[in-house]
Design a protein around this nucleic acid. Structure first.
Length: 969
RNA sequence: GCCGGUGUGGCGGAAUUGGCAGACGCGAUGGACUCAAAAUCCAUUGCCCCUCGCGGGGCGUGAAGGUUCGAUUCCUUUCACCGGCACCA
């Protein structure tokens, strides 16, 4: 009945109609088509703004309410920037290679291409329903052959480049060859031998070059599951068994492509200061890179525990050298034993030399350590395990004979895979030493305890009393201080501060030729091979001699072969799935596209059967968006220069889970491209922002297990009971998950309220960066706001505009304030407060309107135009509908943002709080022009203030103009 | 264990640079309109106390201290929750 009376009411069905109408209209009018420099209609005079989302991996499950959070945020920014006169690049695409599609193919036989393209269809359709202002003409997926072609091209750029340490930059391999040929650089062979290029044979020359390329073949341990026939990620391995199926997993070496990202460690670290990123993300990256300064020290290893207590005394049989990296060379005199990683080559030597019992013990320990995943080895930090190798080393400072142990708390891939253990000054070494009764020697005293002397402590950690004073060793002193007990016949470092001692000891080590200064990074080279089907093939083949040859650029892209069956085969040795494509693997150099200058065309070759990881496609997609249709270059020079500008992408929004890997890998590729002159900015992303997670309510039972949302009912406000048992449960916040039945589908929400309401709701939930619980009950607030705004502007009975004939002064002021506030809030991505401001405008204007005299209240035509512009970035369909009702023919998208009249931002009078000793007692109206002295006079003259003071003399009066007066009496 | 983050009404949150704590929304309560309901509009809504009422007072931003005329904001200690993760030598 009411629907008959108000056919133009803003309800879900009406929202659906206008939203689809304007989405079609925008598409037909190319409203969001972005022109590149050189295109017809490109406006050179406008500044650029490149705002981008982290593109999604389209999963079969479709969009989740968490996906749009960031997309709505960037869309608001994109729309506001357009209205402020920027050329805006706002693209969307698909990260489309990935494991889920391949696993689905294993189960069903459906080709990943089909799974992926139907998931893309779903995602695109769902995203389009939100009315995002993407330039859909730039859409692409990382699986598109033209995109793969340039992903492979970038890999070839790395193949054809080397890192020149002298300039700290990548350069083309041709320049390296030139240096060799002219003799400016000698060829380094193993064992510190160098040769001239002319003295080298062909294979030495080839090795010299291959050893310098940014991408190289390296042997790496992988978690191979013979039964599943696949390599597993660390997280997929539990207790040495596969997560799926519980089959045994072995760590096996495998030759794979690597990137020399470590060459860029310094630049990746230093350039973090060039970008406007969240501090926490920059910290995470810099900790991941993990630069630490210290020394490398070489110890001599022998297999006798023979007494060699003095420097230069008896020289036992020296077997090997053992190098360690330490950040605390100043504690060398305190090194009372050494530990090597179970995978360290020296362990093999120890096993060979050990007696049968010991040999068994060591072998078993190493085997056990190898079975444990990295995660496991690193998580239980309390219990230290290890075995003595039977080998000994000489501490070069004390001359002492110290035992070499192996323990899994030392990792092979950090530093040299070996440490000198200083139990008095390192927590882990201390725990290990006390567990195995190893000696502890104090060599650093906190600065204020310099009167004490250090010496070798007893075996136990219990307060060891020493001559000259007690040094408590229940607590390890890991800080800096004053060196003690650090003298030998040659030198003394006693009394020096930690910083000075470090320098002096390194000098001494260098003089003796047994150590040097070294910077170490935690960052490791990037393993870039996967034994999967659904990834980019490498543009490389192997000749009969086993050496790799690059496929020439003109032969790109290398396409994946068709496969019928995606099931991996059981195997004891790791092998890539693509090995099944026998006909594809075996080809000739000519067919594969290797230049005949490198290999004769009829040479039989084998294709690389590994594929690239998921990261490859996401490493450079922001560049492709600048010029996605280019068939001759990965991006045109002009488009890259214009859209990337001086600092790169102006705003990049995505989840903080990508804080390290994706964002570090993309920076690395970008820097390589920068060094080779293909891009113009040193960094890809100027400003980064992480949107928060959308969580959901979950219900916790008294035993803290969680009950599915659909099994719980709300008895009264905030009181929940489980339906089946009647047990009361507590409402808590949890991640959305299928098992908890608390996943919200955005399609349902849009069907019930419309896309504009959805956008407003997600943006008003709280700060964009915060994680927030979805609460369906609250959506009504955003919906009612739009309904109220609609009624303010439009007669629900007739559909005609309701316009005031004269402006209300208070509303005019409010509108100017709102214009300023909304603009500023969009700039700082504070959309929740911007929306609150818009609500205030509507509420104020609504209140001044009575139902019968519309013409006197509400907004004037001019005010409504401005209001609709402010609302447009948030609720674009709604705004566009009213905009066109107002008689405007062009798209609201490019209308100009309203200007603020500064004069209307100030009031004649302001209300100040009057405080007595910091407590608000009353309020006082003063002219806003009054200065501090005048305000003080007025306040003290106010009768209420005089009464409040009751004769007391004010000691001090603080006036904060426009805010408050504080009288201290 | 370490690092990072967050704690503000019944709920989501606001307070941008040390200056009136609780904007805005949800929920709740009362009223108007209606035969009635929905919708809408109006009012109230941090907690506690005094008061028939008008009013008035106290407490209050996880907890305890500190700095300051003044602290949600700065400092110290501490608790809880969330996220990440390394035994990094």
């Amino acid at each position: 009945m009411s629907e008959l009376e108000t056919p133009f009411r803003y309800d879900a069905a009406f929202a659906d109609v206008i939203e689809r109408k304007w989405q079609t209209w925008w598409q037909e009018h190319d409203s969001f088509l972005t022109r590149n420099p050189g295109d017809a209609g490109f406006d050179v005079s406008k500044p650029k703004f490149y705002v981008m989302d982290m593109f999604p991996y389209p999963s079969g499950a479709g969009l989740h309410v968490g996906h749009p959070v960031g997309y709505i945020g960037t869309d608001i920014v994109a729309r506001a920037k357009r209205m402020r006169g920027f050329n805006v690049l706002h693209p969307m695409g698909w990260d489309a290679f990935g494991l889920p599609a391949e696993q689905y193919a294993v189960q069903t036989g459906v080709h990943p291409r089909h799974t992926t393209s139907s998931a893309i269809e779903t995602f695109r359709k769902q995203l389009k329903r939100f009315g995002f202002s993407y330039d859909w003409s730039r859409e692409f997926a990382t699986i598109d052959p033209e995109y793969v072609r340039f992903t492979q091209w970038i890999w070839l750029q790395c193949w054809n480049a080397w890192f020149d340490e002298s300039t700290g930059k990548a350069r083309p391999i041709s320049q390296l060859t030139q240096q060799f040929e002219t003799g400016t650089r000698r060829v380094e062979l193993s064992g510190n031998i160098t040769k001239l290029w002319s003295e080298c044979n062909a294979s030495e020359r080839r090795a010299a070059i291959d050893n310098m390329r940014l991408t190289y073949l390296g042997e790496q341990l992988v978690n191979w599951c013979p039964k599943l026939g696949t390599v597993l990620a660390n997280e997929e391995v539990i207790d040495g068994k596969s997560e799926r199926g519980g089959f045994p997993v072995v760590r096996q070496p495998l030759k794979q492509w690597m990137f020399r990202i470590t060459k860029y460690a310094n630049r990746l670290l230093d350039d973090l200061k060039l970008v406007d990123w969240p501090e926490s993300t920059r910290t995470q990256q810099s900790e991941w890179i993990g630069r630490s300064q210290g020394a490398e020290i070489h110890f001599t290893v022998h297999d006798s525990a023979g007494a060699t207590n003095h420097v230069g005394d008896a020289t036992p049989d020296v077997i090997e050298q053992l190098s360690v990296f330490t950040t605390r060379p100043d504690t060398l005199f305190g090194a009372t034993y050494m530990v090597i990683a179970p995978e360290h080559p020296l362990v093999k030597v120890a096993i060979e030399r050990a007696k049968p019992d010991a040999r068994k013990e060591i072998t078993e320990y190493v085997a056990a350590a190898r079975r444990r995943s990295d995660m496991e080895r690193q998580s239980d930090s309390k219990v230290k395990t290890g075995v003595c190798t039977g080998l000994f080393a000489t501490n070069p400072a004390t001359g002492a004979n110290i035992a070499i142990w192996t323990a899994d708390y030392v990792l092979l891939n950090y530093g040299t895979g070996a440490i000198m253990a200083v139990p008095a000054h390192d927590q882990r070494d201390y725990e290990f030493a006390t567990a195995f009764n190893l000696p502890i020697r104090v060599v650093v005293l906190p600065a204020r305890d310099t009167a004490r002397h250090g010496t070798v402590l007893g075996e136990q950690n219990s307060a060891s009393t020493l001559t000259g004073g007690a040094i408590q060793t229940e607590s390890v002193y890991g800080g800096e201080g004053i060196v003690c007990a650090s003298s030998n016949a040659e030198v003394s470092f006693d009394g020096l501060t930690t910083a000075v001692a470090k320098e002096k000891i390194i000098e001494w080590l260098q003089r003796r030729g047994i150590g040097n200064k070294r910077v170490n990074f935690r960052l490791r080279d990037w393993l870039f091979s996967r034994q999967r089907y659904w990834g980019e093939p490498f543009p490389v083949v192997f000749a009969p001699d086993g050496l790799p040859y690059a496929i020439s650029e003109s032969a790109l892209p290398v396409r994946l072969p068709e496969l019928e069956d995606f099931k991996p085969t059981e195997s004891d040795t790791p092998r890539p799935l693509l090995g099944k494509a026998v006909d594809w693997i075996n080809t000739t150099a000519g067919q594969a596209g290797v230049s005949s200058a490198d290999l004769p065309a009829n040479t039989p070759v084998r294709r690389e059967a590994n594929t690239m990881p998921n990261w490859a496609g996401s490493c450079w997609y922001y560049l492709r968006f600048c010029d996605p249709k280019n068939t001759t270059r990965f991006v045109s020079v002009a488009a890259e220069k214009y859209w990337m500008g001086e600092h790169g992408v102006d705003l990049y929004v995505g989840g903080s889970e990508h804080a390290v890997l994706h964002l570090l890998y993309a920076r690395f590729w970008h820097k390589v491209l920068f060094d080779l002159g293909h891009v113009t900015t040193p960094e890809p992303f100027a400003k980064l922002f992480h949107q928060g997670m959308i969580t959901s309510f979950a219900y916790q039972r008294p035993d803290s297990s969680l009950a599915p949302a659909d099994s719980v009912e709300e008895i009264s406000d905030g009181v929940f009971k489980e339906k089946s048992t009647g047990q009361s449960v507590k409402q808590v916040i949890a991640k959305m998950s299928k098992s908890l039945k608390n996943v919200v589908n955005p399609d349902d929400v849009i069907a019930n309220f419309g896309a504009d309401t959805f956008r407003l709701y997600e943006m008003s939930m709280g700060p964009l960066e915060a994680s927030k619980p979805w609460n369906t009950r609250d959506i009504a607030g955003s919906f009612r706001f739009l309904q109220r705004a609609w009624r303010l502007a439009v007669d629900e009975r007739t559909g005609e505009l309701l316009l005031a004939t004269r402006p209300n002064e208070a509303i005019e002021k409010l509108l100017h304030r709102a214009t300023k506030k909304v603009g500023e809030d969009i700039d700082r991505l504070a959309f929740n407060t911007a929306i609150a401001t818009l609500i205030e405008v509507v509420n104020a204007a609504t209140r001044s309107t009575t139902l019968t005299s519309a013409a006197d209240g509400g907004l004037t035509r001019d005010q409504l135009i401005r209001f609709v512009k402010l609302l447009a970035p948030f609720a674009p369909h709604f705004a566009e509908e009213i905009w066109h009702k107002l008689g405007c023919a062009d798209a609201l998208a490019t209308a100009s943002w309203p200007t603020v009249n500064a004069a209307l931002l100030v009031d004649d009078e302001v209300e100040l709080a009057v405080q007595l000793c910091g407590k608000v007692k009353m309020r006082l109206l003063v002219p806003s022009s009054a200065d501090a002295a005048a305000v003080e006079r007025m306040a003290l003259a106010d009768p209420a203030v005089i009464e409040m003071l009751s004769g007391k003399k004010p000691k001090k009066v603080i006036v904060v103009p426009g805010r408050l007066v504080n009288i201290v009496a």
